[in-house]
Nucleic acid binder design. Structure first.
Lengths: 197, 197
DNA sequence: GTTATTCGCGTACCGTCGGTATGTCAATGA
DNA sequence: TCATTGACATACCGACGGTACGCGAATAAC
């Protein structure tokens, strides 16, 4: 990604600075309470630079969201790949998702502001590409292998994805000790319900 | 609620008009894309009236959200009360929730903009009071009756609530024929997993 | 019944913020 | 060496949320 040439390097550096400070401020204060002037000041540039790299505030946020989602997606995929058994891959991925998205900073961008700023449909498409796709693949594989009952996977993907999103928000907000373990257990029981026999 | 006296009537009428037009515009265009000037013009008043009844844009939205949530809550409670068996009450309530929140206008206010505008914690508290409380009560009752396995209900409430929210958004957005039925079936299977033996 | 007072709301105004138009200077290619 | 492109900076604008203040009618006080 890094190109040679003085100008290309400077360009990348500026873009990275905008993404870094944008992410930090959006995470901390929420999209609506962050002014562009704040972001560019923190990044050491001006609004001219921001509008040279992004079409506006919403697209900067979109870029930040994409970064966050792909990080979470990679963590989930890595946790799943650590197992060989398809069923273990599913449960490990779900548990890792629950852990990763418990970070309040990730939540604000990914789960709270994301759908409102970009619209649910666009947010869904990005989530699909980053992590829900893994869930759909895992479920499809398990159906094909006869491990879970034959059924349309799309409804399941959304039910489970929504369940984990909301649970993560709750865990970060009002979690007492043991709530994470209880939630993991409850989620495990729901997943178990999908198994045949 | 309606009081006598010319002034009290006028006051109620203005407030209702603001809530009605606010709800219509927030539902159609989303919180961020609706200007206060638009709302007061539609309601036939001025910003002075709006700020006399509400502390600002966010509180008007909060009042609208409360209205929407309580409507949904009443629908869910009514569907549940139509049954005598506690288990039937749970499933009927969940299915009704899924149906009620498939309305795109309700979704935008209740599921997309709500958490972003008021913050997740405040949104959650309102949702708790309006409808999630019924879910928690139903689950607690089923645990006490020995119909579902003894376990903390709080994690379950959030998992199921989140599952239904996300599923409703999906159904309204990209639903093909049969998706609603498939989702109801999948949700029913997940609920079934909670039953003992 | 007259006066005082509150109340519901309109009007005018302000600061801030997202967005745009244009200028500028260094890096690049011929 | 010179023309050109590109990566910004600067100055500015319109819109919007919010506030200060005024007014007139309904109500309360006596």
């Amino acid at each position: 990604m890094r190109q040679d040439g003085v100008r290309a390097q400077q360009r990348d550096q500026t873009r990275q600075a905008l993404l870094r400070e944008g992410r930090r401020l959006f995470s901390g204060s929420g999209y609506g309470d962050v002014a562009l002037a704040e972001i560019v000041r923190a990044a050491g540039v001006t609004k001219g630079a921001l509008y040279h790299h992004f079409s506006g505030k919403a697209e900067l946020f979109r870029a930040v969201l994409e970064e966050v989602q792909q990080e979470v997606g990679r963590r989930v995929a890595a946790a799943a790949d650590a197992h060989d058994d398809p069923w273990d891959q599913l449960t490990a991925g779900c548990q890792e998702f629950l852990t990763a998205t418990t970070d309040p900073d990730i939540q604000r961008v990914m789960l709270v502001d994301g759908p409102a700023v970009l619209g649910w449909a666009a947010w869904r498409a990005m989530d699909e590409a980053a992590s829900a796709r893994h869930l759909a693949d895992a479920l499809t594989g398990l159906v094909d292998a006869g491990i879970i009952a034959p059924q349309p996977v799309a409804p399941l993907v959304h039910l489970l994805s929504g369940a984990m999103n909301e649970a993560a928000l709750w865990l970060a907000s009002s979690a007492g000790p043991g709530d994470l373990a209880d939630t993991r257990a409850a989620l495990g029981r729901l997943l178990q319900a999908l198994r045949t026999g």
